[in-house]
Design a protein around this nucleic acid. Sequence first.
DNA 1: GGGCCGTCGCTTTTT
DNA 2: GCGACGGCCC
Length: 744
Amino acid sequence: MMTELLAGLNPQQQEAVTTGDGPVLVLAGPGSGKTRVLTHRVAYLIREVGVYPGSVMAVTFTNKAANEMRSRVESLLESRLTGVQLGTFHAICARLLRRESQHTPYTADFLIYDRDDQLAVIKQAMAEAEVNSSKMRPGRVLGAISAAKNELITPEKFSAPTYFGEVVKRVYPRYQEILVANNALDFDDLLMQMVFLLQNNDEVRERYQRYYEYLLVDEFQDTNMAQYQLVLLLSKPQNNVFAVGDEDQGIYAFRGADYRNVMHFRRDFPDAKVILLEQNYRSTQVVLDVARAVISKNTQRTPKALFTERGGGVRVTLYEAYDEREEGTFIVERIEDLRREHGYDYKDFAVMYRTNAQSRAIEDACVAMNLPYRLVGGVGFYKRREIKDLLAYLRLINNANDTVSFTRIVNVPKRGIGKKSIADFRKWVAKNNFTQELALSVIAEGGEFPLSGKAARSMTEFTKNIFAWRKQADDGDLTLLLDDIVARTGFNLYLHDISDSENQTIERSENVRELRGLLKEYEGETLGEFLAEIALVADVDEIDDNDDKVTLLTLHSAKGLEFPVVFISGVEDGLLPHIRSFDDSEGMAEERRLMYVGVTRAMDELYLSYTFRRAMYNATGGPNEPSRFLEDIPAHLTKDIPPMLAQKQNQRAFADEISWETDWDAPRLGQRMRDDAHAATPKPEPKPTLFKSNQRVYHGIFGEGIVIESKRVDDDDEEVVVSFAEGGIKRLMASFAKLTILDG
DNA sequence: GGGCCGTCGCTTTTT
DNA sequence: GCGACGGCCC
């Protein structure tokens, strides 16, 4: 029923769902129901327009979003959804490249290398190109190559007029050769090779252009050039492309995404119908107003009139903590309070942060107070050492040409094949022009090779095992295969050797058991299929919404999600906005968008917290400045304004006055811009105060603390704001409180 | 060849 | 505070 598909949709959403053929651009604010629009449109196309499901391609930002979309469309259609090409750009490209592998330099069972694998290849390539990897950081070189690939620049076309660029130019071709020889693609290759396949092979391009009649792309603001080219290529000739995005939520510029692709779309499809979704169904008015206050300072954007019918709402809480430990405790305690008082479940809460490192303090607080939580990202399951080792076994068994996996495990667990032996083996392979697979089979079958003694015996046994395991993999029982690998390599003993404690050994064994369980889930599929599927799993994909746990995640991972109560921690200058963006206005704009994304995840309540000092590595940092973004939030939207933020606002007002007066005389824009950028010029005092910022002081009851500020109230008294390590932040009159200056 | 120990650099953010 | 890496000694 048509009415059923449109029930509960507002007029703009209905229009988006039912618009006929041709390009459509949906500019969708946060919480405006874009997921609903996408799912309803897919269902509408299939059921009302009669489109064949196989001719629909729908691109989502995460696998999780793809799964959700699938199940929602299925419940709308009341039937299984088969045939629709649904997934992330990366997953879809991997699927198509496997299908068309005969037209690519790879075979259908190619591997997908993650960042660690890539770094291993980069190091090998740098060594072979005779680049000193201690001088030239492999990570930087990899970054440059990745950026080039996102711009569809091949090794031959690569050029950069700097010394660093010259180095990259030498490494890039070698890097790419190794990948091809290993039958492996990196994440960027998935997109780039797909674009090249479509560009260079008329038959394939025309076949897919004909086949995929309807293209839907979510999170369009986070597409990069390669992805945009894919959209342009695949949408022809019908131009039935339905792009949904929000320039204000573009947060992936660092991996080549360009939010201006939203505008490019209007340029490249001038007849595109543009639909605005401005009604927010998620957040309270207060939350939306805070979001607007933050984002409206960005200049390069289309202003939107976001509105909600959820008028009012609880004011936002700003919280100033002494350090990250106190911040963690505050958050955890508040979660327990809200749960008790308002009946929230744990899964209704999210704690967000700018950098993964911040999660540790929050986790510690959760553990200390026995609060169930789930950590998204960080050191994920697939990044654990023991899991990477075992996966390397599985990968090498699946593809004996995988040099990265071979190097990782040829001597893991230790079997007496050291650096020298590996180097000799490599030389031998190169001299004879062998593939790695051929070389390994020569050794397994007892042929001549240059090692001797224990190394030779171990190598022979290792290669024999690899081929025996391959047979076992072909027989289909992957859990049995894993058991055999663990048994024959003495893996459990190895787990003990690499662990610092008995607990760690147990933890690692549990991880191995978890991997075994995972393999069981893939019963009936081949080893290749298993490896292909786990390669593109993102951390967010793992979130199980039924688990009643608090979610800890980065602001980046939070995109597309929503929670009744959101805590954003570490809202400090240097963290959010991150210090690496200070000197770059594009970067600063992106930090604002990041904050905007975080704020707009909140449905009911929002907490923004910052610390006075935050431990970095092992040293205690600080004093920190509250984020400049906090200054943009009007006071009527917040509960109390904590002392450091209040002080900063006063300073800003004072500095603005000064520079306004200066403008009166002679314009000093430079000065003014510096003030705006740092906003923390020290406030001149009419009479010097006894206590000064950053002094260490001692109080009889509260103990040791740090002076945040001191204000003279009259000639012989001053008001001192002190942050005590134990007692929190206190406002004291110098004449009453017996404060001793410890130093400073 | 393996193990131990000191140094260094590190953190944005991720498919 | 931690992991990667290089140097040194057995």
